[in-house]
């Protein structure tokens, strides 16, 4: 067997799995999306029908907000954790990255324990203001859940990137008169841009498509995965749910591609 055919042979399992569990279902999904009463136009429903469009906008806004807030929180925390040594640091990092081990359902459950009808925040606000603050079952609860979900992944990526930063760059900027803020703005953040794009993409994609947390919190939150679920199981509307699924995938991919090309110059320069 030649070297080349051996390599192809080794790739065979991957090819089989990819075909069986990715390409075939995807093709079926794409076909199913066009089999509804409106045919191919069913694909446009995600944009044309007001309810779907509102849900799409909602989902994108939620994912974008999750990404931005996660990046801000995780960058500050990641930089601090990478640059400082203090007792309990290892424990703190372990705690911060713990949610990696939780499925979405558990995260949803924790949000309910915090901000649900019997939740801690409700109890507290009831005692202080005489009114229960409950927001677990809304898009705010979902936002909190996704934040909890995304921060660990982003923190780890940022910490790795900060470790690779040349401290000399910051010292050089300071020697030229740059204030701590200017050093962050002109040197540190541009150097971390590739890490922002990479980890932000994961946070965004997760927030666009995650289902478990949303499902645990409530069945009437207006996000695309929930919409697909209700169309599929409750309305038995296969064609629409297939079209929505393909749309969700395409739109997520499109936004990530845009973000990547938009920051492409910065990434290339910092690489």
């Amino acid at each position: 067997m030649s070297q080349k055919s051996f390599v192809w042979f080794c790739l065979l399992p991957l090819a089989v799995v990819t075909t069986a569990f990715f390409l075939l279902p995807m093709a079926r999904l794409v076909v199913a999306g066009a089999e509804g009463p409106h045919g191919l136009a069913g694909y446009l429903a995600i944009l044309t029908e007001a309810r779907y469009r509102a849900t799409l906008i909602n989902t994108v806004l939620l994912a974008a907000a999750t990404t931005v807030v996660t990046l801000i929180v995780a960058t500050i925390a990641g930089m601090f954790l990478q640059r400082h040594r203090f007792p309990g640091r290892a424990v703190l990092i372990a705690m911060l990255t713990f949610p990696l081990a939780f499925p979405g359902v558990v995260v949803g459950f924790m949000i309910i324990l915090l901000a649900g009808r019997q939740g801690l925040i409700g109890d507290l606000s009831n005692r202080i203001f005489g009114e229960k603050f409950v927001f677990a079952y809304s898009i705010y609860g979902l936002f909190l859940g996704y934040l909890y979900f995304s921060i660990p992944r982003v923190i780890l990526t940022i910490m790795a990137a900060v470790q690779k930063l040349d401290v000399g760059l910051e010292e050089a900027a300071r020697s030229l008169g740059a204030s701590p803020w200017a050093v962050q703005r002109d040197v540190v953040l541009p150097a971390l841009a590739p890490a922002f794009v990479a980890s932000g993409a994961i946070a965004f994609a997760t927030a666009m498509g995650a289902f478990g947390t949303a499902f645990t919190l409530a069945t009437n939150i207006d996000v695309l995965p929930m919409l697909i679920y209700t169309e599929f199981t409750l309305a038995a509307n296969f064609a629409t749910s297939a079209a929505l699924s393909v749309g969700l995938g395409l739109i997520t991919w499109l936004i990530l591609a845009l973000a990547r090309s938009f920051s492409g110059s910065a990434v290339a320069a910092a690489g």
């Binding site: 040349d166 000399g168 760059l169 010292e171 050089a172 900027a173 300071r174 020697s175 030229l176 008169g177 740059a178 204030s179 002109d186 040197v187 541009p190 150097a191 841009a193 910065a266 320069a269 910092a270 690489g271």
Partner: peptide, 21 residues
Amino acid sequence: VPIERRNVGMVFQSYALFPNM
């Protein structure tokens, strides 16, 4: 006085040039 107010020019072994500029 911190380095940013000492008005010193510094050249580093790694040069530490800003890659984004």
